[in-house]
Design a protein around this nucleic acid. Structure first.
Lengths: 346, 346
DNA sequence: GGCGCAACTGTAAACGTTTTCATAATCCAT
DNA sequence: ATGGATTATGAAAACGTTTACAGTTGCGCC
């Protein structure tokens, strides 16, 4: 059995109340007894039990993060942003990821009750019904990149639509007309928004030019296959815009294999600005998403909601993305950046 | 106030004991009352409080992970491995990272008491004294990549020494004699082992050839600077072996800028096999560390120690690394792999 | 009819804290 | 001396569970 506050109290010849007081930095305890207590704490190697503590204080100093995965650049960055923000506030992070199905996600969510002070949720299953059924009631929650925001939650997302729109705008400004798009998975909310951004921009900026959409799945291999497909189209596009960087990189391999030069023969652009993007040749023009910042801000808002429950800040917030122009779109060697239009729907 | 087990009991006209029983899947409760209870649970949206539960059961179904950082390829992979293994067992992960100093790490460790069933620790501060002072007693712990393993802990690490040794062996087998080394940070345990591996291999395989060591810091920029330095040496090396891939990539930039061809003029090798390594030109020869597997195995061992505390498995375990031969060392275009000698010290 | 047994259910103690309230001790001004 | 503050301390309730134990039934059987 490990040492409890009672053992410390006994060892220091005081009551548990006094021990608790010094451990929580209350000032109303005699200097001499405080010393005696601290000595006992040290001698016995006492560490308070977190479960007992949070049971009574209703505070865990822990935030839960429900994520679909931990793999890859995106989540690595997201977690990093969340972590930085959490650490700055002395909070722990309880992560739960990789949910095969909605039931698993639900179970994970339910077991968080009593273990966290708030929740960060990013999940393909996070629709209104799911959340209503499985979110512990009265637990502050921030949704990340979800299609819909229920009444009692806050939301935080990336402006994928504006980013994609801006990229098409950029490619069009360079004189490209036939701009093909390699899409992401159909059931992915972000992929949908990027596709819409592409469609809307094509319709608005290049009316009459037919859209060309190749199906991808956000993997480099699917980008490679799309690249091969693309070369067989009767109308070869002037430019290819992939819905994420990994697919752009895969596509680049296919283009290189076919002997095409990028950007001379065909321009290429991606989305995300993963670290790899600046290391490949040519360097990839892309839309930068400030993923870490997304995590940081989401957490910051969550903490605010926990600490000041009444002051209701704006429920939804959208993070602007940024155009990163590099060699692959044929804009010259120097990298430039430009904020995308903020087309928030709030 | 949120709904507790008492509310459910009242609503179903039973005692809390019965509610607890059906929630924990005990069979000794009447089918009809079970239904009544489950109905009440659903109606009230009851979710058990984790803190109360773990206070009495002494189980949290959560594992703690103390890491120095969450940023970068290494930790992303490590966390991924840990996460996969945790999820397979229905466990949560409480992460705490980015500790600026030992005190912070200590605080993080202490607050884990009562919130986790076991601990995964990877920290530059994790020496014997630190652990003895701050590890909650009797809490199963697995140390990752630490120099020394105290009595009551288990350890898991990568065989950096053998990996570096094998790489020198490979380079020497290609006829290179003057093999320079770009080292990592001096206070980093892994960097030290890689350096030792290099030194030992040079002494054993190329006796008489002087070692050439450039100081780096594991960043691509420090690799770039080392590369510039290296070109000014009176004896230009035939090959450069960087203590990690990022530095190799930085060095590559410097070599390219100076007009040198890799591997024709100078061979290059790294360590880690980060995803980037196969995307740069030429593809980087490197030592692959199975980082995710490291995390998985560490967690698996931790869980075993928790579930069967008496059966003491081997305390330390070393994970073999693997040589990945690609173009940058001049071995031809095809990638080959080869296990490094297992020079475990157990 | 009483006994033992099985099946079900409830009571209450425990887990390790925090915190309210009461009490004791000290002090200072009358 | 006496009273009212002020300060330091302890006793005990509370947090929401689980579980050992003790009932309470109903049943079959001598």
């Amino acid at each position: 059995m490990s040492v409890t506050i009672k053992d410390v109290a006994k060892a220091a010849n005081v009551s548990v109340a006094s021990v608790s007081r010094v451990l929580n930095g209350r000032d109303n305890v005699n200097e001499e007894t405080r010393k005696r207590i601290l000595a006992a704490v040290r001698r016995l190697r006492y560490m308070p039990n977190g479960a007992a503590r949070s049971l009574i204080t209703r505070r865990t100093h822990t935030l839960g993060a429900l994520l679909p995965d931990l793999h890859g650049e995106f989540f690595s960055e997201l977690i990093r942003g969340i972590d930085i923000a959490a650490r700055a506030r002395g909070l722990h992070l309880l992560v739960s990821s990789s949910h095969g199905d909605a039931d698993e996600a639900a179970a994970a969510l339910r077991t968080m009750r009593g273990k966290v002070d708030g929740l960060l949720v990013m999940s393909p299953y996070a629709n209104a019904d799911f959340l209503a059924d499985n979110l512990p009631p009265a637990l502050p929650t921030v949704l990340i990149n979800t299609p819909h925001t229920p009444e009692n939650c806050m939301a935080m997302s990336v402006d994928n639509h504006a980013g994609a729109y801006a990229m098409v705008e950029h490619l069009a400004s360079l004189g490209h007309r036939h701009i093909a798009f390699i899409s992401g998975p159909e059931d992915n909310f972000e992929a949908q928004n990027r596709l819409h951004g592409y469609r809307d921009a094509m319709a608005a900026l290049l009316p009459g030019v037919p859209v060309q959409i190749l199906e991808g799945e956000f993997t480099d291999n699917s980008g490679y296959l799309a690249g091969q497909h693309l070369l067989q189209l009767e109308q070869r596009p002037d430019a290819v815009f992939a819905a994420n960087d990994m697919m752009a990189i895969g596509c680049l391999s296919a283009l290189h294999e076919a002997g095409l030069r990028v950007p001379e023969d065909i321009a290429l652009a991606g989305f995300d600005d993963i670290p790899l993007a600046r290391y490949i040749t040519p360097k990839l023009t892309t839309v930068r998403v400030h993923i870490a910042e997304l995590g940081e801000q989401a957490l910051a808002r969550l903490v605010q909601a926990i600490e000041e429950p009444n002051t209701d800040a704006e429920r939804e917030k959208t993070l602007q993305s940024e155009l990163v122009l590099r060699a692959s779109s044929g804009t010259g060697a120097h990298e430039t950046r430009r904020k995308t239009a903020h087309a928030s729907k709030v």
